[in-house]
Design a protein around this nucleic acid. Structure first.
Lengths: 221, 221
DNA sequence: GTCTATACAGGGATAGAC
DNA sequence: GTCTATCCCTGTATAGAC
């Protein structure tokens, strides 16, 4: 699964995540994949402005100028990373949303997917969450529309549950925000090798999300 | 979801927050206060590495070198901002924790204080949450101990509530994390002039936090 | 596609006058 | 404490060989 031979220093665990697998599936050239992941992990660790093009190239085990064979600029690298990560997220959620089942189950699944994603990809996720101010306005707009698509999925599940009477809440937007907070904040506090696996975190957050949409005493239903 | 919007040019709104008032109370010289707030807002908007010392000075309406009259380096400015913000947070929370009342009321108050703080100071808060990697290891350690003090307050309220039987939860750490997620994520999504005031957000998050610690007998599960 | 070499700008920090 | 001037390193990006 991981590239054979002397693994590029610094790419490390990044080579095995969902994004890395996606890059392989889509037959991106090996050099591009290395550079892409180097950039993603460097941005995650030091931020966009704190990362130099030399850092990125060095992580990929290449010369300082090598990055420019794959990206037109450092900003372009950030842009491509953000788009790829968000598209993959949307895709995972859409596959889920297509199945029509009970709203509670769908909410469980959506929260699990997002939580696991933010845990397993916390470096890349934190880039998408906090580094996008460095993009050009045009690129920011493109990225924002994809973020909105993710919000829409969550909102859709909640409104469906309200419509069907499965969820009883007073303010859809507030609950949507709170549930997203539970999910995205995983990227801030999660550490690999911690007390809980990403899957366990997903289950836990799903439980908590359900508590938020099913207001307390409801003995007679 | 975009991390930074065009905040007021110059020092702008920053001059009126709790931190600004604190700087006045403690009789910091006017120049220092201006430079401190300039740096805080600049870091919040562009990140530590994305901010130049010239940016900071220009926001304060001074010459490029003026920052060095107050801070030994750019890193030192970040350090002082982080310490001041965290100390003030700890102080606000401690004043609250001193009163001995019902755990549910204390949890309400703690969550309200934190949520309002993260809303009213979302620029400074996002600095404290996401820019501290640029500190020296020594400074990081100092800052981390203060962050832990904040976590301790939240944890203390939860454990007290569990001990008294007011809260019924299975995993204190998990609930602590979730409640902190609700609070800190306010700094990511809050925009001044939005649908809710900081106070309303505080009330809302307090409600949600109470739902998380008082699991109702749930027939659906 | 990858390298070496390099141009060119930008930015952190200091010196010294006032 | 604030300014102007400046040093000098770092970092982005390009040129051109292989």
């Amino acid at each position: 699964m991981a590239p054979d031979g002397p693994a590029a220093p610094g790419v490390g665990g990044g080579a095995t995540g969902p994004l890395a697998r996606r890059l392989e599936e889509y037959r991106f050239p090996e050099g591009y994949r290395r550079m892409f992941l180097s950039a993603a992990y460097a941005f995650a660790e030091k931020g966009f402005h704190g990362t130099t093009t030399r850092d990125i190239a060095a992580r990929a085990g290449m010369s300082p100028a090598a990055m420019y064979a794959f990206f037109r600029s450092k900003e372009d690298a950030l842009y491509q990373i953000a788009i790829a990560a968000l598209d993959l997220t949307v895709e995972m959620l859409s596959a889920e949303g297509a199945r029509s089942r009970r709203p509670a189950d769908r909410l469980r699944d959506v929260v699990k997917i997002l939580s696991i994603w933010y845990a397993n990809n916390s470096p890349v996720a934190s880039v998408v969450l906090h580094q996008l101010g460095a993009l050009t306005p045009e690129h920011q707009a493109e990225v924002l529309s994809r973020k909105r698509a993710i919000d829409q999925v969550v909102r859709g599940v909640i409104t469906d549950g309200v419509a069907s009477g499965d969820f009883v809440i007073c303010d859809v937007t507030a609950i949507e925000t709170a549930i997203m907070s539970l999910c995205v904040d995983v990227a801030r506090w999660y550490r690999a090798g911690g007390r809980r696996t990403p899957e366990a975190i997903g289950e836990l957050n799903a439980d908590l999300a359900l508590r938020l949409v099913q207001p307390a005493p409801d003995p007679v239903r």
